[in-house]
């Protein structure tokens, strides 16, 4: 039961985050700036939950994104699972209580998937300098936003879990 609750809470946080980002992007279309902070979606799950729980969250989050974007089906699902696998591989080297580590992990993963998206989703545009200019601006913008919100987002998940009686930092995580 406890396990189900933590999956549910992290999942709801992720889906809510995606929805808010999309709402924000909808409101900001006049500037042609696009926020793409999805790299941080797997950070909490990878750093704090069991592998199977995190994988389930990554899959459902990926599927949710599949529904919202017109990318080739499976692309975001693949990306989420991929960065979750990468983050899980790195969790031993990072301190989950250290927010800076989480932040850098989020930034790194986000840059990685964003560039992958640029190469795959915009493959017919890669020869255009204008495309890369826009990509650079959006990446900078997204990274700045991640710097500002990642701590809040991760702490928010911790607090929610705490509210339902799960103290994530005191639990031993089976790696």
């Amino acid at each position: 039961m406890m396990l189900k609750r933590r999956i549910l809470i992290v999942l709801v946080c992720n889906l809510g985050f995606i929805f808010l980002v999309q709402l924000f992007n909808h409101a900001m279309t006049g500037t042609s700036l696009v926020l793409f902070p999805y790299g941080i979606l797997v950070v909490f799950a990878a750093m704090n939950l069991r592998f199977s729980q995190g994988l389930l969250i990554a899959i459902i989050t990926g599927l949710w994104m599949e529904g919202s974007y017109p990318s080739p089906f499976g692309w975001f699902l693949f990306l989420m699972v991929l960065i979750f696998a990468l983050a899980s591989r790195l969790r031993l080297r990072l301190h989950r209580e250290n927010r800076a580590h989480s932040l850098f992990l989020g930034l790194g993963l986000n840059t990685f998937i964003y560039l992958l998206c640029c190469l795959v989703l915009g493959q017919w545009l890669v020869t255009s300098p204008l495309y890369w200019l826009r990509v650079a601006v959006d990446l900078l913008y997204s990274s700045l936003v991640i710097v500002f919100i990642s701590t809040w987002f991760l702490e928010f998940q911790v607090s929610l879990l705490h509210l339902v009686g799960i103290n994530i930092y005191q639990e031993e995580i089976d790696t």
Partner: peptide, 27 residues
């Protein structure tokens, strides 16, 4: 993690398209 990723990808590739389409539309 990478073993799981590989298994997941292999499984995804062999999923019938009807299932994928339904999953997408449902999502």
């Amino acid at each position: 993690p990478f073993l799981y990723l590989g298994c997941f990808l292999a499984g995804w590739l062999f999923l019938p398209p009807v299932f994928k389409n339904t999953l997408r539309d449902t999502s």
